[in-house]
Computed example of a mutant assay.
Amino acid sequence: MVTAVDGASFSVPRGKTVCVVGESGCGKSVTGRSILRIVDAPGRVVGGSILWDRDGTGDPVDLATLDPGGPDIRKIRGDEIAMVFQEPMTSLSPVHTIGSQIAESVRLHTDLDDDAVRGRVIEVLGQVGMPRPESRYDAYTFQLSGGMRQRAMIAMALVCHPRLLIADEPTTALDVTTQAQILRLMVQLQAEMDMSVLFITHDMGVVAQIADEVVVMYLGTVVETGPTEQIFTDPRHPYTRALLQAIPRFGQRRAGRALSIIPGSVPDPYRRPGGCPFHPRCAQARPGTCDVVEPATVTVAERRDVRCVLAAEEVHS
Rank of each mutant, 00 (worst) to 15 (best):
V292N: 06
A64G: 15
Q181R: 14
D234I: 00
T233M: 08
R304H: 11
L189P: 12
P60D: 00
R14A: 08
T97I: 00
Q284D: 12
A242F: 09
D40H: 07
D115A: 14
E80K: 04
I98E: 02
T17S: 02
P248S: 03
A4Q: 13
K16I: 00
T201E: 01
A64V: 14
T172H: 05
V124T: 12
C160G: 04
V46F: 08
G126P: 15
P68D: 02
E314S: 13
G7P: 12
G25Q: 06
H202T: 13
P42E: 03
S135P: 05
C276L: 07
A311C: 02
T233A: 14
P280D: 09
V46A: 10
Y239N: 08
L36W: 11
R44Y: 15
R307Y: 12
F232R: 04
H202I: 05
L174N: 06
R272M: 15
A242R: 07
V207G: 05
Y137E: 03
P60I: 03
R254P: 01
Q181I: 05
D59R: 09
L165N: 01
M89Q: 12
M204K: 07
G99D: 06
T225I: 01
S196W: 00
S11V: 00
E134S: 15
T172Y: 03
V187L: 10
P227Y: 00
T31N: 04
F232C: 07
F199D: 02
R132M: 11
V176A: 08
E313Y: 09
G48E: 02
Q245F: 06
R249M: 03
L112M: 10
V2Y: 13
F85L: 09
